[in-house]
């Protein structure tokens, strides 16, 4: 890991010195032990802030989209001949590159506007699982050596194997190496062993009765406080005006009505058909621990079962909902 970090800093420095990128999105050490936080780097001297470890959880493609669309907006009122191009660099693992592929498929920006520094990934730590493993104790100090976390809390020292606190989406990840990249740092990571059972949880849930599924859905959604953190963190949620904030028409009511919350979640989830890359950002930022992945993974499974498509794995594929085949599934069509 240290080796990857060193190479990453060198590469970032070189790209900024050669002015091949105007801004670089990566991770820096967080203010609390065993955390990492997204950072934006614009000068070569700052490149030493960059880190890459198992605590980098967010999907940085979100920031790439934000930066590029802000720049596009700022150029709208500039004469075409005076418009400037800006290139955003990003430190990207498998799921981040899948999100970038998705943005490119959806014509959000050009391939020449983003420079991808690919890094291998063997999963990140699920903060909620880590807190649970420590029974909620505050972490005073911590370090990661190989596959072992050494943590010092108020109650004393504790050793936790990294495998025990990996995020669920990482355990079953199929694409932990970058799909596309301009520069690759380090060797590709080995495949995650759980990838073959990626839909096991969904299949288990499908076996339940309709009422049991509905009870689970309403139970999970009753936790939601409508903070919209999931939407803010999701790289596929980039509408300039989200449907929840539209007032004409008002698609979904504000306030604490349980049905409104269910409808908000249902609509946001359904906007992810063939667009969810299973990066786990929404789950990791959710302050209430809503089990969003149970539902997102179902959409992923359906799109793969019905149309043989996985989100963001190839630049040549069109988005699954903007294309069709003559032999698409149609056994659900009602014929009296």
């Amino acid at each position: 890991m240290e080796n990857i970090e060193k190479k990453l800093r060198e590469e970032a420095k070189r790209l900024l010195e050669e002015k091949r990128v105007d801004a670089l999105v990566g991770f820096e050490a967080g203010t609390l032990p065993l955390t990492a936080t997204p950072c934006f780097i614009t000068s070569p001297e700052e490149a030493d802030r960059l880190v890459w470890n198992a605590f980098c959880s967010q999907n940085l493609a979100k920031y790439v989209h934000d930066l590029i669309s802000q720049h596009h907006n700022s150029q709208k009122r500039v004469k075409p001949e005076d418009r400037k191009k800006k290139v955003v660099g990003v430190v990207a693992r498998g799921c981040t590159t899948r999100s970038i592929v998705l943005h490119l498929q959806e014509r959000q920006y050009g391939r020449d506007e983003v420079t991808i520094i690919g890094v291998p990934c063997e999963g990140y730590v699920d903060r909620k699982a880590l807190t649970a493993a420590l029974d909620g104790a505050d972490i005073r100090e911590g370090s990661l050596t190989g596959d072992r976390l050494d943590i010092l809390t108020a109650e004393g020292k504790k050793e936790i194997p990294l495998q025990d606190v990996l995020a669920d989406n990482c355990r079953t990840c199929r694409f932990n190496n970058p799909i596309i990249h301009d520069v690759m740092i380090g060797e590709p990571a080995p495949a995650m062993p759980g990838a073959v059972q990626e839909y096991a949880e969904v299949e288990e849930f499908e076996k339940l009765s309709t009422e049991e599924r509905w009870r689970y859905f309403t139970k999970e959604m009753s936790k939601c406080i409508r903070c919209y953190a999931c939407r803010q963190a999701c790289p596929s949620c980039y509408c300039p005006t989200c449907f929840v904030e539209q007032t004409q028409p008002q698609w979904v009511g504000l306030g604490e009505d349980a049905t409104d919350t269910q409808v908000f979640q249902l609509m946001r989830l359904f906007h992810m058909v063939g667009r969810c890359v299973d990066c786990g950002s929404c789950v990791s930022v959710c302050p209430m621990g809503v089990d969003l992945r149970k539902f997102l993974k179902k959409l992923d499974k359906d799109v793969f079962d019905f149309f043989g498509n996985r989100a963001g794995v190839s630049l040549d594929d069109p988005p699954p909902l903007s294309t069709f085949k003559e032999d698409d599934k149609e056994d659900f069509i009602y014929n009296p």
Partner: peptide, 28 residues
Amino acid sequence: MARRKFATLKSFLDYIGIEGDRTIFTWV
């Protein structure tokens, strides 16, 4: 494309616990 959207919508609504017979789609 509409066919694809309805295929996933019907399946998803059924998954969260809305009875499948409430989501009906056909061409007329």
